[in-house]
Design a protein around this nucleic acid. Structure first.
Lengths: 345, 345
DNA sequence: ATCATGACCGATAACGTTACCGGCAAGGTT
DNA sequence: AACCTTGCCGGTAACGTTATCGGTCATGAT
């Protein structure tokens, strides 16, 4: 701002050249210890702060990472904490842009990031984004990019995500073991990769237990609590209603819970319920809801580390690289029928 | 990055000077319409992106706002959405730094913001921050600053916040009207302004209803659910236990709820409960918990607008300026005794 | 005395952009 | 014919920093 202190000021006051002051400040050789001492002291007393701006302009790198996310829910903000931590450790700064699930916003944000000359981009693509021009533009400029959590196969960039098949498998296997027979899945938006993967886990678990799957029990909805509620009401009024529900997000699961409650059904006896994400809320409702946890913090941190590696060793990480983290099931009363619980072989 | 397209490239290809290209691009006068046209077209086809870096360096302003927050919980991320919206509308970019409630982190973040030469700072000070040197440093450099939500009187910067006295009043008045006699308040950390204000509202409400307050019912705790739980257990084992609890945050309220449940007491009959923030969770627990809502999004937006105004008309907003938004009480079963409910005059 | 060596320092250009000034031609005014 | 406008354009410096090169001196070796 106004009265920025620059190396010029220091140089003038000490009768030195800019070069010498610059060298002194960044501990370069070729400078007398006494001179360095003097420079350092004056710098401190003037509370000199180097201009990252000038530096960035000069070396054509900003040491800034752009993060594009659809919103800032619980899971994502945990991931961002992980990202931030990894960035800090390597001296990078993070700029978060949330698109609020809007394509227009995501567009504006991408433009801002490009203008700000970030050194790399971490992106978790919004579930409603179907046009990828702006993200392709980033790739076209050879900006290092890594996808995390949500991803699109249209983007040729490495991805760090959770093993969604495993998550779906864990939830479903558990329900099967608890003796549930007609397990429905609230699978999220139809074309979303994350939903397909978790559904595959659901199918795998059935196959593993040699159970047939009634295709009517695979239903789609969006990620809102509302949608979970209405879809579950539909499910529960089927002639042969499901006796368990696996929702691919806790928000959906909460909606399902409300519908179950409204129908006067009891968990876990009449019906079982498992969610995904293990958000704090599911522990507080009654009964507490089982949920598959993903290591959000670690995921963010890993994604950021991968990006930094990609930025530094330019081009050594293949664009189809995938880093996959394991999920973990937390079992709670909503799906725990102690009486009928089957012990694993 | 690598192959940044600059006005130099455009100038060379069109046999123009840098000056002309620059003028053409930013619609300045003194340039032939045809020339401008040509420049514009070439710029588009090269997908030229101006370097905000160079621009910022030149005009000594980055059009970036730094935001310092203790974490990214529900309330804060809503505020940040508001901040982001206001910033976007005025062409500013937001850089969020979360301190994770740690002083060291907050220090590092402040340093980064100063280095990045943000044009202004929005700060919501961490509840555990007791040293303000780093924030004072921002003020010393005459960087425009606005506090939002949480504030400290040690910082001479305008503040946008919610009317906490009103919030405390609304919650307490409601409990009194519902016929509760011994209303306790979980008032948060002892020295936090926010807690004091809400406590004042609590006292005012009693005074308004000509009720005495038992000082033993004003108890302190920190902002965690844990702390709410343990403190409530203490409260409930008093010889003359309270018959209602007002918790100054929903997290605390949830803790209180768990303690109440554990003691086998029923809400709202045996005991009433009101929280603060109206987070989604409180609607989902059983019984749903009443809560005072603050307009988080608007608060963030307003704070950002104020900051932008402060940045533009330099120094016209007095440092003790306060902008105060109203709270609103949401009444739910946890405190609604229909039988004894008193109708307001 | 001469030379090479090393320690220390300064001048300059560059990163991409714009603000400021000056120049030049075409046309209009006295 | 001499003058002033006006429209258009180019040159230069500057923002704060560092990389590169070159310079000056004292020291020790020859």
């Amino acid at each position: 701002m106004d009265g920025q202190v620059t190396i010029k000021d220091i140089a003038r006051q000490l009768n030195l050249s800019l070069s010498t002051v610059s060298r002194a400040l960044r501990n370069a050789p070729d400078v007398n210890p006494e001179t360095r001492q003097a420079v350092m002291e004056l710098a401190a007393s003037l509370s000199y702060t180097p201009s990252r701006l000038a530096l960035s302009l000069k070396q054509r790198q900003t040491r800034t990472i752009g993060v594009i996310v659809p919103n800032l829910d619980n899971v994502l903000s945990t991931m961002i904490r992980g990202i931030d931590e990894a960035a800090l450790e390597s001296g990078y700064t993070v700029m978060v842009c949330q698109s609020n699930e809007s394509y227009g916003r995501e567009l504006a944000n991408t433009k801002r990031l490009l203008e700000s000359l970030v050194d790399g981009v971490l992106v978790s693509v919004s579930s409603e984004t179907k046009i990828f021009d702006h993200l392709q533009e980033i790739l076209k400029r050879k900006l290092p990019m890594v996808q995390f959590d949500r991803s699109s196969s249209e983007l040729k960039a490495p991805i760090v995500r959770v093993d969604n098949v495993l998550g779906g498998f864990q939830a479903t296997e558990h329900l099967i073991q608890q003796g549930y027979r007609r397990i429905a899945i609230l699978a999220g938006p139809k074309n979303l990769g994350i939903g397909k993967k978790r559904t595959k886990g659901y199918l795998d678990a059935h196959k593993g237990a040699k159970r047939k799957v009634d295709r009517e029990l695979i239903v789609h909805c969006d990620f809102s609590q509302e949608s979970g509620y209405w879809t579950t009401l539909d499910l529960l009024s089927m002639k042969k209603r499901p006796d368990a529900i696996f929702a691919i997000s806790d928000r959906i699961a909460i909606g399902a819970m409300l519908a179950i409650r409204e129908k006067g059904l009891q968990m876990p006896n009449d019906i079982g319920l498992v969610g995904f994400n293990n958000e704090p809320t599911v522990q507080l409702v009654t009964p507490a809801v089982s949920s598959v946890e993903m290591p959000s913090f670690e995921l963010g941190k890993l994604a950021c580390k991968l990006l930094i590696e990609k930025m530094q060793k330019h081009g050594v990480i293949p664009e189809d690289h995938e880093e996959i983290l394991k999920t973990r099931l937390f079992i709670r009363p909503s799906s725990l029928r102690e009486a009928t619980g089957v012990i694993r072989p």
